[in-house]
Each structure stands twice: as C-alpha cells, then as structure tokens.
Write a protein that binds this DNA or RNA. Sequence first.
DNA 1: GGCTAAGCGAGACGGTACGTCGAGTCTTGGG
DNA 2: CCCAAGACTCGACGTACCGTCTCGCTTAGCC
Lengths: 192, 192, 192, 192
Amino acid sequence: MPEGRRGAVRSEAARVAILEATAALFAERGYDHLSIEGIAARAGVGKQTVYRWWPGKSALIADCLLEGMLLPDRFAVPDTGDLRADLIAWLAGVEGVLDSPTGEGLYRSLIAAASENAEVAQRLRESLADPRLFAPRLRAARDSGEVRADLPVDEVSEALIGAIMLRALARTPRDPGLPERLVDLTLGPRPS
Amino acid sequence: MPEGRRGAVRSEAARVAILEATAALFAERGYDHLSIEGIAARAGVGKQTVYRWWPGKSALIADCLLEGMLLPDRFAVPDTGDLRADLIAWLAGVEGVLDSPTGEGLYRSLIAAASENAEVAQRLRESLADPRLFAPRLRAARDSGEVRADLPVDEVSEALIGAIMLRALARTPRDPGLPERLVDLTLGPRPS
Amino acid sequence: MPEGRRGAVRSEAARVAILEATAALFAERGYDHLSIEGIAARAGVGKQTVYRWWPGKSALIADCLLEGMLLPDRFAVPDTGDLRADLIAWLAGVEGVLDSPTGEGLYRSLIAAASENAEVAQRLRESLADPRLFAPRLRAARDSGEVRADLPVDEVSEALIGAIMLRALARTPRDPGLPERLVDLTLGPRPS
Amino acid sequence: MPEGRRGAVRSEAARVAILEATAALFAERGYDHLSIEGIAARAGVGKQTVYRWWPGKSALIADCLLEGMLLPDRFAVPDTGDLRADLIAWLAGVEGVLDSPTGEGLYRSLIAAASENAEVAQRLRESLADPRLFAPRLRAARDSGEVRADLPVDEVSEALIGAIMLRALARTPRDPGLPERLVDLTLGPRPS
DNA sequence: GGCTAAGCGAGACGGTACGTCGAGTCTTGGG
DNA sequence: CCCAAGACTCGACGTACCGTCTCGCTTAGCC
C-alpha cells in the first residue's frame, strides 16, 4: 500500500511535452540558447512545472538522452560474426550523425551539456557505446585470438568515441575512411 | 608611408589585464559562471574595452590559450629517442593536469568553451598535441620499422587526446596506468 | 464571470516603493540624473518590475504627480467669496513652492519632464490649476459683473501659470508682489 | 602687442560646423537624443574640439540661439502705430512656429534645454520677446492712455509668452484666435 | 460530498548579465 | 597649440532568463 499521498498526480502529458520541447529547441538552437523559459513556453507549461521535476536544463538533456529523443539510435554494435566489420559499421553510424544538417551542432551541443552535467556525460557515452555490450564482445575476441592478446579492452571504446568527439569539437570535416582507420588503429594490424 | 591610421593606440596594459582576469576567473569558477562583466570588473576596465576587441567570452578563452595562460605547458612530446616512452610521458603530463585542484574542472571548462568556439577547439587541440610536431615523429618511426607499417599516423593523437577528453567529460577517476595502456593500444604490441 | 486572468497579482508594495523612490530621487537630484536603475535600487526592486509597468522615467513622474507625491498640494483655488483675493492667495501658494530649498529646481525638473511626456504636462497643469474648478468660478464672476464681461476665461489660468513657469525657467528671483500684479493684469483694473 | 600666445588659432570652420550640426540634429531629433558624439560626427570634428569650447550640449543650444540658428526670427514686435495690432501680429508669429512640422517639438525641446541651462532660458526669452524693445513700447502706451494706467508692464510679456509655452508643453492644438484673446486679456478691454 | 493536498498554467517578483550607447578624458600624429 | 581620430573608464540603458513565489483552478485520495 502506498503511503498516504493525496492530491493530483504528476501529469504525463506535461512531462512529455516538456521533453519534446527540450529536444526540439535543443536541435534547433543548441545547448546554450536553450532556456527553461523557452522550453516551458513551447511546451505550453508553467515554469514551475519544469522546476518541480528537474533541477535545470542539463538534467532535461539527460532525460531526453535516456528516452532516445536526441540521438537517432542506441548505436548498438551489430553482430554479424565479423567483429572488425561490426565495429566499423557501428562507428560509421556514430559518425554519420554529423551528416544531417541539424546534426551539425548536435554532438557539440551534447558535449557542452556533458561538460556541466555528469549524468549527461554518462548517458551520452552509453548511448554511443554501451560498455555492457561492447567489452564482452572484445574480450571474447581476444580470448579466441581474433585480436591480439594484449589488447587493453576497456580503452578501445574510449579511444574510438574520443576520437570522434574530438573531431566534432574541432569541426574536422567528415571523412568516409575514418571508421576503418580508427578500428585498424585500435585493434591492431589485420591478420593477413 | 603608413596608411593614415590616427587616434590613440590600443592599450597593452588593458589587453593583458583582461586576459589575466579571464584566466583567473576561468580557473576559479569555470567557463559558465564566467561573465564579461566580472572580467571587466576584475581587470579594472570598462566593458566596452572588452567588447571592442573580443566578440565574446569564448574568444577571450581562445586568446588565453594562445598565450599559454590556461594550460601549464605546451605539452610538447619529449624526445629521448624512445618514442613509446616519450608518448607515455607526454600523455601522463596531459592527464596529470587533472591532479591539480584547480585543474579538476579545467578540461571540462575548456571543452565547454571549445564546443561553442572553433578557434578554442583548434588551439586546445594544438596545445595538447601540436600536429606539426607529432606526426613527423610518428611517420619517421613508421618508416624505421619502430612501429607497425600500416599505422594511421594522423589518427593516433586524435585517439589519445580524445580518450583523455572523454574520461574528463565522464569524470572517470585518474588511472596511473592509463597513458601506457593507451599508447600500447594505438602503437600496437610492444616488440618483445 | 471575469475573463480568465491568472497568475500572481501585481504587488502593491512594489508599486508604492517605486513611486516613493522616484519622488525622493526626483526631489534630491532632479529629472535628468534620475535613472531607472537608481530608482529600482532605492526601491529594492528589480529593474524589470519597473519596466513591466512603466515605459520610462517620465511616466513614473506622471504617476507621482497623480498621487500628489511631488507637489505639496492640489493648489485648489480657495473660496472666500472674494475671487480676486482667492486667486492671489492661490497664485502665491503656487509660487511659494519656489521658496523651499528642494523646491528650487522642482518646477524646472517638472517642466523638463513635461517637455518629453504629454501626460506629465497635462497633470502638472491640472495640479497647479485644475480647469474644472477654475473656469466655473471665473465664468460666474463674469456673469455677476464682478469682472469685465469680455474676459477670455480659459486663457486666465494659462497666462497666470505660464508666467510663473517662465519665471521659474529663467531663474527670475521670487517677487512677493507678483501674484497680485499678475491677477491685476489678467482680471483687469480693480473696481475702485 | 598681444600677450605671447603660440600655436594654432581656433578654427572658425570647426566652430560653425559644430553649431550647424547641433542645430540640424536638434531640429531632427529633439533635445534629448542630442549627443555630443553625434554632433561631432555630423560636423566631421573630434569630440575634444567640442569639449574644448563648450561645456556641454545645453551650451551649444545657447550659442545656436544666439546665432539665430534655431528660431526663424528675432520675433521683434512690429511697429505700425497700433500697439494692440502689433502685439497680436507678433504673438501670432511666435505661435506660428508650431505650424511647421519640424517646429512641432521645437518649443518643447527648447524648453527642455532651458530647464537645465539658465543661459538658454534667458536667450530663449529674449528671442521671443526682447524686454528692451517690449517694455518701452508698453510704457509709452500706458503714458499716452492707449492702455489702462495701472497696467503692470513687465508682466505682460511674461504672461503672453508663458501662456504660449504652457500650451506648447501641454500639446494644446493651435488656435487662430488665441493671440487676439491673449492680448485682450493682458491689455484689458478694447476701448469702444 | 466535502476536505485537504498536490499538480497545473500563468505570470509577477528580486536579481544577474547581457550587449549597446554616450559621457567626458586622454593619447596619438599631423599642421 | 589646434585639430581629427579614436581608445579609455564609467554609468545607464532596455532585454533576456534565472529560480522563487503567489494566484485561481483542477484533480485525486481520504474521512
């Protein structure tokens, strides 16, 4: 039995409207230029309703990430049996977000949000490369001799994602060959 | 004959005072919480003098980076003849900034600044790993057989610096063994 | 049913504090030198609260006039039965404001405010000589033969107040005989 | 022999350009909205050259008045022998300035300037009704019995000009019969 | 069914900072 | 010494949002 809460219950409609307004404004105008006031207005909601449930705009972004409203996909590593090809395909997907016009500043804005909110950073990282899926695959490949035995597994996704982010930060133009080169770099030379 | 520039010349004292105030406040309170108003007050300068020469706070950070007022060093890769050891030492230096108390949020703040200003991003990247110094060393090592022949040289520093940044973003705790593992990851297995 | 006004209601405390601060600073430092910023600070109020309800400082002065916070009195024409004496007494009162030390620049400041805001001008004029009280008295006196039959009633207060204002503008020193001479001038020769 | 002043002499061209720029901007945009900066720019002159010779913008207005650059005329009372007609004609001229489109705010702007600068007030008053010309005419008329014997001569122009100014302040619309009624009011009933 | 909470849209409140304008002063270099 | 140009410090402008706080209304469990 729930403890005796009385009164109206949280409005799901408001919650969704707020997150959708956040995602829309985030995509339109970037993380800075995002204002609680603007979100509330766009969502047709009082400011207090936002502040009642979230401490600030970075927490809103964290929730949007969690609901998959900002990144197109969960970017899970596909599993065709060929690890190297799977990683390249996945990394190409991650980098491919940069192609869309709205996606131009998307990563940069997410990085800005992550820099002031640990939860955003955590969820952003998991969205791009979920360690729970990533590491076991790599460990298995190492054990089976598919990749070299001394591969520092945990660092692989950090290096791959980190490189993508650094390039997004520096506005380095898209490079179709990049995913393959990065995977080559981290997994070591292809067995010939 | 110089073209007819007339009128008082730009005050070097003001320029320096502004950059120093920027660096001090940036270290003290981070990139957000940095305000032009606060910088001008701390520098003993009118706001207009800031706006006359810089379009906003991100441009101030870019100039501070250029003058080496934010990062302790140019983080050049040392040259002892042992490339692998040199890279590890350099990377340890880069990561070591995180040890200092003020340096806790330093990288995160720089990343925030970089996310809204391309020049900051460019200069941050060069401060950490100047490509003009970095790549030639690697190419030479590749040619001499010191590292594997198919090493994608340009991606090495991206992966290394990217990994550090990603960990800074995610507030991953310092790990003394990290530099070595990252260098192992990118340069491939040590020749035994 | 009232139309659906919702949200918090206007704070009377803030309204009064702002008008009082305006009146105090106006008396202390004059119309120019009056700043919204100063008013808000003195009233302990955000600037936005001023701008929400008044478009600028001249409108504040208009409201202060309406509330009788700037001019000591409504300067109504007394009614002792002797019109000529009443007008002289009233005009002496109006001119007497110039005696007070704070009142030195009071009229000049009010004139400055009136010159950029029609409402101030209107209310200033009514404060000094309310036409709704003034004209009927004069008309009755004309009908009863107390003053000459061709007296242009509406112009009387304009001439009287106008003369006072012109002297205030020109910093002409106070002259105790002035009210009587002006009334003589406008009402015509005393019946002997 | 002049005392030994050395160096360049004041530039008449600059002086005139400044006054002309002042008059033009004053007519275009009114007394407030008048800025030294704008005047200097319009005159093609350094700000310092303005400040070297005038203490502020009200002094510039005073000089413009003196040079007749603001008011169309000296508004001298004509002399046809018929004093009453002359006064009416003169007063109609003074009031007629209000007809011109630029003249709409001209008086109000002059009043604003006068309210913060005694010299402007003095010169404005003299421009409209020079006491040196005005009073003697009236005194002669009083002596010759043309107007009543107890007329307070000095107050006549004050009342006439004051009434005009008060109406300008209050934005009272032009009234073609006004000059005649005001003269009637001050000079007393027409001898029939 | 009435009472008491809580949530809600709205929006006023005291603040901080924004980016701009203009004030009045000072500094250059040329005449 | 004057002049045009223009950089300087400083104060105020009017605006945007912040995060908090009433309002009056609706919604829901509880007596």
